[in-house]
Nucleic acid binder design. Structure first.
Lengths: 333, 333
DNA sequence: GTGAAAGCGCTAACAT
DNA sequence: ATGTTAGCGCTTTCAC
């Protein structure tokens, strides 16, 4: 096996507890001793075993991060930011992909929860009921899902959707469609609500088409319905759906933005790099990842002190509309 | 605290060791007892504490996955496949991002190695020397880097690069450029070698431009040099660079593929969804992720049995060329 | 087939 | 400031 605390203790002529303290409570040990122990540890290549430490402290210094689909470009920036923030705080993070499957999501939470101090649930597809039950086992922070009594980080996509509809209304469009996302998605519900309200305010006709698979295939598959509906503008669940839709429209001889204006959500890499560049609702994914980690860590240290119910916060992050090339003034109103 | 093995033992009227056996060696316990214990465990919501188990067995059932940049679309499919495969084998995976920083990469390996049974190093930027030293601490599998004595999974990008140059040669191009990647990248070296050789065989002139940042910014920044060089075809380090280059070329009034043919590497989502659709070298990222996990797991169980040097394999995965819309016959030869 | 006991690497009272 | 002791949750000889 590897070098343990005992090896360091023997080598430096002190008791194991002194070595332990050198690492977990340095101020409690004589500066001279500390230096010596540190030197020996360095020389031996000693690294504290975090699992063993977790056994006594009850803190694993690990976090779980559960997402619906790592390959969906919405998530990588969030994952990247979350693990960077966690590392900053001396935490490591397990990343797990649920493949958009609620059952797998639950299963993952349950197996992971014994190994982590808390879990970050991003855009969960799980029912509120199940989440409620699970939260007894491990502290949660949920991203993009509203849940009473739980700490949540919300990206205010409603605000972006409102701006999007107004943008399109200002361009003279009178009939638009909303390509909604997966049934369990909070984001999709928010978008629908905001879009419906705003469309009404502007006396626009809005058709909701969906649910759609949150990928380019979903958008491609919806192209027929969009074409048939005769709308001149479409707000899509995300950039991928928008990009797929644009492709499908093109296959039907419909150009974007000439014949139809299309708006996505996420401001993802593919949208930025595509032609026409996608008009899209920006989502503060990196900020959400960092904030979620900080809130989770706060919840964790908080729940250690008090026996009462965990404190809960709702952080609401702003979204915005980036107008690029996939929207333009309606040609035939 | 949560429910432990002892709670289950008390509740089901057996000794803790019997409960332990029920989970880790079921065949050693009476079927009837087993059923009862399992029922009680289920009822109590008992989940074995893997960290505690790791303390005695020496197996954490965790893996580390280290990548240069989660947000680079090359990695997500690999990460997704790797963690799915790991889960299948009852392993969890820590994902860490090095931000293309060799020092951080080393740091991460060192802190992670005590918590995992092995680490997957993807496209490492670390020097061979350091990797050699680190491998004593923890089993490795390296993706896209050649290292004697180490188990590696290689994507044969040379093969794809050869096909790409031949494709371009067949289209009548006589002068092409290679936009190389980061200095430490094995992939970049392989591409360069293959492209140089193949270009020579076809009496083409090849200029190597780089190193370039492996992102769209790298490609954008290289556009000036490419335009100045007067080449009619460019093979880029990856799709992002290619997409950035296309944008930069466009800003200079150069169209793709009309004026310049551009080829990427990765067959990533942005490349598939962009206009023109990117001609690119496909990389078997998902397969590599799965295979790397399996090889790592094999190394781990292998190294448990024998005290000798760990076995090493080199898996070479095929790449291919997908011809799409960003390449065409040269206009002014 | 099951129980008893020791111990994995570490921390946390409690002594001194 | 440092040593002693007990124990975290689990596995694993070793008896029976």
């Amino acid at each position: 096996m590897a070098v343990t605390i005992r090896d360091v203790a023997r080598e430096s002529g002190v008791h194991v507890s002194t070595v332990s303290r050198t690492f977990s409570a340095p101020h409690l040990v004589n500066a001279e001793t500390r230096t010596r122990v540190l030197a020996v540890a360095e020389g031996l290549g000693y690294r504290p075993n975090r699992a063993a430490r977790a056994l006594t402290t009850g803190r694993t210094h690990n976090l779980g991060l559960i997402v619906a689909d790592i390959a969906n470009p919405f998530f990588p920036p969030l994952i990247k930011a979350a693990q960077a923030q966690a590392r900053e705080r001396d935490y490591h993070v397990f990343v797990a992909d649920t493949d958009e499957d609620p059952l797998l999501e639950q299963e993952l939470i349950e197996t992971l929860c014994k190994q982590v101090d808390g879990v970050l649930l991003c855009s969960p597809r799980l029912s509120n009921r199940v989440i409620e039950r699970l939260r007894a086992q491990v502290p949660f922070v949920v991203v993009n899902r509203r849940l009473k009594g739980l700490t949540t980080v919300l990206m205010d996509v409603g605000q972006g959707a409102r701006a999007a509809v107004e943008h399109v209304a200002g361009l003279g469009h009178r009939r638009m469609a909303l390509l909604s996302g997966p049934a369990g998605s909070w984001t999709s519900g928010e978008m629908r609500q905001a879009a419906t309200d705003t469309a009404a305010e502007h006396h626009m006709e809005l058709s909701v088409l969906g649910p759609n698979e949150p990928t380019e295939h979903g958008g491609l598959a919806a192209a027929g319905a969009v074409a048939a509906s005769g709308v001149t503008a479409v707000l899509c669940y995300n950039d991928l759906v928008a990009l797929g839709l644009i492709e499908g429209l093109r296959q039907r001889g419909l150009g974007v933005p000439d014949d139809v204006s299309v708006i996505g959500v996420d401001d993802s890499l593919p949208g930025r790099l595509s032609r026409p560049k996608l008009t899209t609702i920006t989502m503060p994914t990196a900020a959400a990842g960092r904030m979620a980690v900080d809130l989770l860590l706060a919840t964790i240290s908080g729940s250690a002190g008090t026996a009462g119910p965990a404190p809960h916060t709702t952080a609401r992050l702003e979204t915005g509309l980036v107008i690029r090339e996939s929207t333009q003034r309606v040609s035939s109103p």
